[in-house]
Design a binder for these strands. Structure first.
Lengths: 392, 392
DNA sequence: CTGAAAGCGCTTACAG
DNA sequence: CTGAAAGCGCTTACAG
């Protein structure tokens, strides 16, 4: 009591309610009191708080302090929060009141240390600023949120090795409970992913399966079905000479899409781009220079198709009168450009959602063993970029 | 030794090196040994590991186990890792060897519990799948990575109150050390943000300042300068009758852009959209129906400008011969559509990078007090959507 | 319905 | 150059 003048406030309770001096509720949310002494733990405790230092980050309240203020044990506070065992309603009410008043929030790290669960999942994508991966991310986040998981994003930046390390370390340090991985290029068997996933870690592959990782569940589109449909569409329009601007040669999706198109165009010329507009432009440029003749262009994604259209336009070739062009994905711009791009719509949002769902399923089950891969249906969208082949 | 048959492996060392049985290195990375007994802590320890249960998530190694294997204290292992005090090079070498061999990674949660730092920052954006916010996210992530911070993404989904709660709780639970907040609409003074930021929490506003939060640093574009330039451009082309399809009325950026344009077009009609393509379309539709006459349209962002262009096209009005259209942002499609959209380029990537930089500065300094807001320059990009006003 | 106590896996004064 | 020990803030058997 010698230091009584340092006490700025006190709180007390009897077993029926809680008493606070008027100014107590006005304490800034983040200003943490130190318990300086106990008068009677069952009914009163003295609480002091440090001088107003709203500059440095103030220490948050602890469960210990809530317990002391409520005159109960931490056990009871903990159970009031978790609901894992009954707490008398009077006590619970009092504790909850204190928690609200103090603005107490349990420390996530401490919680995690005991429970072993961080409540976080990770998403590794090549570039979060791409529309395509952004949609996946949004789907993942929606589903994660529905299941009370937080989301940590890691851009792989098209395989920067330092970054690759980083997100797998998130898994290792238990910062995240599971990882959703979206491959951008072929994954070499030497990749860290291979060794990690070999030990049945909680990993789901989104959008792109990886050869040799059959035990890792994946969520992909039915690429072959979509490509087949596009092929038939152009075949039905009378086209016979086609070129395919494919993606990276090692990717599952590329292989599947090329195969699907080839069912209708077995002789189609195949060139490879990198999924960006410029590469579509460049490939068509090269083909034109080489004198290759064609009336149809398959872009393995919309961006390359757009690049192709631009080069055709510059060459004085009209779309679709002279050349028909199709893409894949149905990105936001596909319907905005003129002519609109005929393409196959992938539901990227759903790919993200389902990926998260599979991961969380596995997490809840304690193993990815029973989790099955998913292939989602796609839908052809016919717009103005395709038309009947020119006569003559 | 009665249970010797349960021991699958052992390890030992003398003070010059480490000895392991051949199969030891082949242990799956995540299979954790339990220390079953010590023969001589200074030279040998017996390690057993559980039956091969590659199904359930296996327990990772602990620092305790590394220390035991190396015959040193945890203190020394910890300091070998952190470098916070000298460790004899022989010991350090031995410990590092063990760490590599075991694939040990320190537990992030435990580390955080002691150090009080999670190494994570949060980013709250309305919708991560939008190109615009995706660019910000990417910039934030780049900078965060450079400073060894992880990034947690929270979509605010245009102010779903449940979500709003969630990301501020990340801050409260110490899951993240700081938050970058991108407002999508006007922030009401009753918002949680207001109360949180009032206590000088580590928060940075990206892209959009908020009235009444002067103490919270922000990173924005020079909206008025960009808008002024667009206004002059159209004025120079001879336009006099303009309409402005503005964004949400309460946003700083909207106010600034409208003001900038009005310097050249004080009488411009102002209508408000929601930044989406459809609203640009709808507003022009309404104006045409009302018989409003104009030769120039200012979209407060590119998407609305694109919507406006589409409606004009449908009305048989040519861009730019009959009506000139400008946008703001220079999103990816601005250069792809025909005609290309004249607009003002904002460097969203840099907005993200700088926001993260300010936040991390404040975090390192222990306070946001000295952190100054930033306004980034913008650049007008003239494309085909603007031209001289039609004579007559 | 409630509490005392152990312990999650680290870091860091304190003491050689 | 190194170690024993306290403690970060919780959760959870164990014991009433």
């Amino acid at each position: 009591m010698l230091e009584a003048n340092r006490f700025a406030s006190w709180c007390g309770h009897d077993n029926t309610g809680t008493l606070f001096p008027a100014d107590f509720a006005l304490l800034p949310l983040c200003k943490a009191p130190r318990i300086v002494g106990f008068i009677d733990c069952k009914s009163f405790c003295i609480v002091g708080y440090s001088e107003p230092v709203d500059d440095a980050s103030p220490k948050p309240w602890t469960m210990q302090q809530i317990a002391a203020a409520a005159g109960v044990s931490m056990t009871t506070v903990s159970h009031t929060l978790s609901g894992k065992r009954p707490v008398s309603s009077a006590t619970a009410l009092r504790i909850r009141g204190l928690i609200d008043q103090f603005g107490y929030v349990p420390d996530a790290g401490a919680r995690r240390l005991k429970s072993g669960r961080s409540g976080m999942i990770g998403l590794a994508v090549p570039d979060i600023s791409h529309w395509y991966f952004g949609r996946i991310a949004r789907g993942v986040e929606e589903m994660a949120n529905e299941h009370d998981f937080g989301l940590i994003i890691c851009s792989t930046s098209n395989s920067d090795p330092r970054r690759e390390k980083r997100y797998f370390n998130l898994l290792r340090t238990r910062s995240i409970e599971g990882l959703i991985y979206t491959a951008s290029r072929e994954i070499s068997p030497t990749d860290e992913l291979m060794s990690i996933s070999a030990s049945s870690s909680p990993i789901v592959l989104a959008d792109e399966g990886v050869a040799g990782l059959s035990r890792v569940p994946s969520v992909t589109s039915l690429n072959s079905a979509g490509a087949r449909e596009l092929g038939r569409h152009l075949r039905d329009l009378g086209h016979t000479r086609a070129v395919i601007v494919a993606g990276f040669a090692g990717l599952h999706s590329t292989i599947e899409r090329v195969a699907g198109i080839r069912e209708s165009f077995p002789d189609a010329v195949v060139v490879h781009g990198d999924f960006e507009v410029q590469s579509g432009y460049d490939r068509i440029d090269e083909l034109l220079a080489q004198g290759v003749e064609f009336t149809a262009v398959f872009g393995c994604n919309d961006y390359m198709a757009v690049g192709a259209m631009r080069r055709l336009h510059e060459a004085g070739l009209r779309v679709p009168q002279d050349v028909s062009v199709v893409g894949f994905d149905d990105v936001d711009i596909a319907g905005v450009i003129t002519p609109g791009l005929t393409t196959v719509r992938q539901d990227m949002l759903e790919i993200g959602r389902r990926s998260a769902q599979l991961l969380i399923e596995g997490l809840d089950a304690g193993s990815m063993r029973g989790v099955e891969s998913v292939a989602l249906p796609v839908e052809m969208i016919v717009r103005g970029s395709t038309g009947p082949v020119a006569r003559g």
